[in-house]
Simulated assay, not measured.
Amino acid sequence: MKRLLLAMLLLCPAPPAPRAQPAAERVAIWVPGPDYRQVVLGAELLRPPGPGPFPAVVLLHDCLGVTADEERWAERLSGWGYVALLLHRFDVPGFDTTCRGEMSAAAAWQPIHAEAAQAWLVATRPEVRPDRIGVLGWGQGGSAALLLVHGSPEPHGRPFSVAVALHPGCRQPNPLRDMEAPLLLLVGSEDVFPPTMAPAAHCARMAARREGRRDKPLELVVYRGAQSGFDREGIDLFLGDRRFLHDPAAAEDAVVRIRAFIGRYLGD
């Protein structure tokens, strides 16, 4: 019997080894600083295995800085077949961690830095498809994504192919300017910028202006009862009077929607 069991074990194939997470490559990108001089912006780049070329997504964090949540998203995107470039905007001298409003001094530079990162990908990374680069942002980074698809003040080249914004403010300096790319907005119904600004209402007005446009659509998802940061695993804190609270159901749904939306415009 022992010999039979040994023979069966030898004939059975070994279980597949767990798939290793891709290693992040630390890169440096030259961007304009607060005094308009060129400074280095740090970033993490993750890419799928193989030669490519692959579509890419530039990730813009919120006022909390880069956390495990953004790093998980970079890994997730790489696993889906995208090059993920996660920018660290607080690496730039003079840009500190701040949650003082939707468009702080550091946040106001994010659209320009995102475009510089896009140009860097096109110029230096042959594994990236230059015509298939999207942008994904949270909070202040989400507001930067809105500016990018509405045309930023200092364009560096081609527009992004698609944009996704999670809990942005939806306040635009020129709301009548036409969009340059498809946009997915994901917001919580209970998210409020003190004292009275409710992003969901602003986003709804923005979506109403785009109703009926199929070439560069705007899709809005409002998660009932959700606060800001609904996709952040385990978070429950107040920054001033604004609450950040994890909502597992909303977070799970957001992953599904984001994958489908960017795949629609960055995939073949």
Rank of each mutant, 00 (worst) to 15 (best):
M1N: 09
K2D: 00
L5D: 00
L5R: 00
L5P: 00
L9A: 08
P15E: 15
P15K: 15
P15C: 15
P16M: 15
A24N: 09
R26L: 07
I29D: 03
I29Y: 06
W30R: 09
P34V: 08
Y36S: 11
R37K: 15
Q38V: 00
Q38L: 02
V39Q: 11
L41A: 14
A43M: 04
R47Q: 07
P48N: 03
G50T: 03
G52T: 03
G52P: 03
P53Q: 11
P53N: 07
A56N: 00
L59W: 09
H61W: 06
L64G: 12
A68T: 07
A68R: 10
D69M: 12
E71S: 05
R72D: 10
W73R: 14
R89N: 15
R89W: 15
D91C: 13
V92N: 07
E102C: 01
M103W: 10
S104L: 05
A107N: 11
W109R: 04
Q110T: 14
A114V: 15
A117W: 05
W120C: 03
L121C: 09
A123S: 08
T124A: 15
P126Q: 06
R129W: 02
P130G: 13
P130A: 13
G134Q: 02
G137M: 03
W138M: 07
A144T: 08
L147W: 11
L148N: 11
H150V: 00
S152Q: 04
S152K: 01
S152A: 03
E154I: 01
H156K: 14
P159A: 06
A163W: 13
L166F: 12
H167A: 12
P168W: 03
C170E: 01
R171G: 02
P175N: 09
R177S: 03
G188Y: 01
V192T: 10
A198F: 08
A201N: 12
A204F: 07
R205D: 10
R205G: 08
A207P: 01
A207I: 01
A207V: 00
A208W: 04
E211Y: 05
G212E: 00
G212Y: 02
D215F: 12
L218Q: 06
L218T: 09
E219R: 13
G225Q: 02
Q227E: 15
Q227K: 12
R232P: 00
E233M: 05
D236G: 09
R243F: 06
F244R: 08
L245M: 09
D247S: 06
P248M: 11
A251Q: 07
V256W: 04
V256Q: 07
R259A: 08
A260G: 01
F261I: 12
G263L: 04
G263T: 04
G267V: 01
